[in-house]
Design a protein around this nucleic acid. Structure first.
Lengths: 203, 203
DNA sequence: ACTTTTGCACTGACTGGTCAGTTCAAAAGT
DNA sequence: ACTTTTGAACTGACCAGTCAGTGCAAAAGT
């Protein structure tokens, strides 16, 4: 069961990679199963041997991708914590981790954003769950920051978390799509400046 | 020619309204022309009488919608200017205007975000143009703010503009999708706090 | 006054093509 | 021995786009 499940793992991974770029470019509905199979270098029958349907392949892809993101954010937060850093430093590290993720998996990010706020789609409930996991990591750090007095008590945690995630997401996607010449550090600095409230010249 | 072009206008408007919600929910490819026609209360042929293709209908819808957004942002900025407000106040007013737009046209916003960062789609070039118009409004205010010393010279204008737009967009969409109980003022306050750099408790 | 013509806006059945999912015997891999 | 993959053919639902024809109001003709 171990060696055989590894063979399946490899095939599934190839299918994820093929599907993610195709769906990011064309959307779910206009990407055909034949295309996915061809790009992955497997037969169409293999897709249906490994996944119940096209939709299920996509849902597992979503779970897999957001799992990676969540792990990366959590690692950044924990590592700052261990080094005795502040919560603002943790947020900064998470921005970096988020940018790194988007840099490594731009297609996945694109696809995630394209689907997240849609309603009435088959994978809506899957998406709700994985989104909550990722947002919770940010909310936890904000909450701890408010508790220890480092962050203002006035902040609205869920809304601020959403705004921070949005800031990173959109800045990074724009960077990838329209401002390729910038480095990841340029983007990080711009976001860091905003996070620290140093946009306004008074200080 | 006047009454006849009015009739067409009315039909086109109905088609826009039908298409925008359907495409926001289901995506472009899984929305059928039959559905659009049915919801608009016209025959399928009418769609093709008024638009060259399904894609062209969608492109004109994008142009129409972003036109409304751009006008609203520009109005907010100009109005602040006329009242002798600061650039930061102008940005704040634009955040409000952006939220108002998303509140009024949530489906359009959804659809715009879902398409914006895709590559290789038929309407890519249309999108590039309309996006640039909207972003330029924000960039102009930022640039003027830097010039008159109100904003830090360190800021990277295109990246900061993208981040601000993202902050508003994502916070608003999250509000609409997952935090319906909040008021528009809650969202505005949360974003305003971030803009003014008052998240961090020190001050 | 009246008939006829014009052409815009719209209709809806139809066509040609596409695609998800199925099937299965044979081959390859472990 | 058992699992996984192959490949190619097939089915049936679905859908973008077409086109011959309808309705109607205003202009032109008589």
């Amino acid at each position: 069961m171990d060696s055989s499940s590894t063979r399946r793992q490899v095939t599934r991974q190839k299918l994820y990679e093929a599907a993610v770029t195709l769906i990011a470019e064309q959307g779910f509905s206009s990407t055909t199963v034949d295309e996915i199979a061809e790009r992955a270098g497997v037969a169409k029958g293999t897709v249906y041997y490994n996944f119940k349907s096209k939709t299920e392949l996509f849902e597992e892809l979503l779970r897999h991708g957001v799992g990676l993101l969540t792990a990366s954010l959590r690692a950044a937060a924990d590592e700052t914590q261990e080094r005795g850093g502040t919560k603002v430093e943790a947020l900064d590290a998470m921005i970096r981790a988020g940018l790194g993720f988007i840099d490594r998996y731009p297609a996945f990010t694109q696809l995630y954003v394209a689907e997240l706020w849609r309603t009435n789609r088959a994978w809506q409930s899957t998406l709700l769950v994985v989104r909550q996991e990722a947002v919770a990591v940010v909310e936890t750090v904000l909450r701890e920051g408010v508790e220890n007095g480092e962050l203002s008590k006035e902040i609205d945690i869920p809304l601020t978390a959403a705004a921070l995630v949005g800031m990173v997401l959109v800045a990074a996607l724009d960077w990838q799509a329209f401002q390729r010449e910038r480095t990841i550090d340029d983007v990080h600095s711009a976001l860091s400046l905003l996070l620290h409230g140093r946009v306004s010249g008074r200080r």
